[in-house]
Simulated scan of single mutants.
Amino acid sequence: MSGSDATAGAASGVPQRAQGMLFGDSLPDLDTETGYRGPTACRAAGITYRQLDYWARTGLVEPSIRNASGSGSQRLYSFRDILVLKVVKRLLDTGVSLQQIRSAVHHLHERGVDDLAGITLMSDGASVYECTSADEVIDLVQGGQGVFGIAVGRVWREVEGSLAELPTERAERGAEVEDELSQRRRARDAG
């Protein structure tokens, strides 16, 4: 999302903040202490663990609740992180370059949660444009720029549905959390 793309809403005279979600739903309260381990995040976002690991190591989408801090530690992803992972997956599937996706993700991270749900990302396969109203979507399509769109509010509901039956984990502040294999190694080495 280039500077002109990221500010498309403001340039057209439409306020940057959406006038509510595209589908009129209210937003759930998000728990900032509860998250999802890597395999759960992968299932909900429809990506491989290799993608998840690469995106975390390169800073594309890092877990906001707990990052890996050495061998055996577990990343813990928030709902919002998984939402961004799924949006990244969709953009990649449509042929958008990783450079454009990085720019779009950076811009999405600057948004509040309320704003995210009201955004539609449009792309022509090369650039990513942010639209916060139906008028902006129409203007972009009529200008010949938009080829496909991702309604973030709809992706939000898809992720919410996927995560409803998957396990969560509470972040333990100040405590290092080990996976089962690391616990076994520690016990073996101590004995």
Rank of each mutant, 00 (worst) to 15 (best):
Y129H: 04
P63S: 14
G46P: 06
D115T: 15
G72H: 09
G13T: 10
L27W: 14
G143P: 04
A56M: 10
G191H: 06
Q16F: 07
V159L: 07
R184T: 01
T120V: 11
G9L: 01
T32E: 12
S123L: 02
I138R: 13
S2T: 06
A187I: 05
G20L: 10
I138G: 13
R185H: 09
A8D: 00
V141S: 15
D31Y: 09
V177R: 09
I150Y: 01
S162P: 00
F79S: 01
R157Q: 11
L163Y: 03
Q51C: 11
A8L: 08
D31T: 00
R184S: 05
D53M: 08
T7C: 10
Q74C: 12
R43H: 15
Q183K: 03
L22N: 12
G112Y: 10
R80P: 00
F79G: 06
V105Y: 12
H107R: 05
V152W: 12
V128D: 08
R154A: 14
G9C: 01
R170P: 08
G174I: 14
L85R: 02
A175S: 12
G24A: 14
D114A: 15
D53L: 10
D179Q: 06
A6T: 01
V159F: 00
A104Q: 03
N67K: 14
Y36E: 06
R170G: 14
D31H: 13
Q16K: 10
R184F: 09
H106Y: 06
E158Y: 05
S78P: 02
V159Y: 00
G149P: 00
S133F: 02
R43I: 11
Y54I: 03
T32G: 04
V88G: 13
Q183P: 03
G35I: 03
V177L: 12
V155P: 04
I119M: 02
G70N: 05
F79P: 03
Q142N: 02
L121V: 00
G72M: 08
Y54M: 00
V159E: 00
R170W: 15
G3M: 11
T32N: 02
L181P: 09
L85D: 08
V105G: 13
D124C: 01
S69L: 08
G70S: 11
D31M: 03
R17W: 10
D114I: 11
Q100C: 00
I150M: 05
V84L: 12
Q51R: 09
E158D: 09
G35M: 11
I65E: 07
T132S: 06
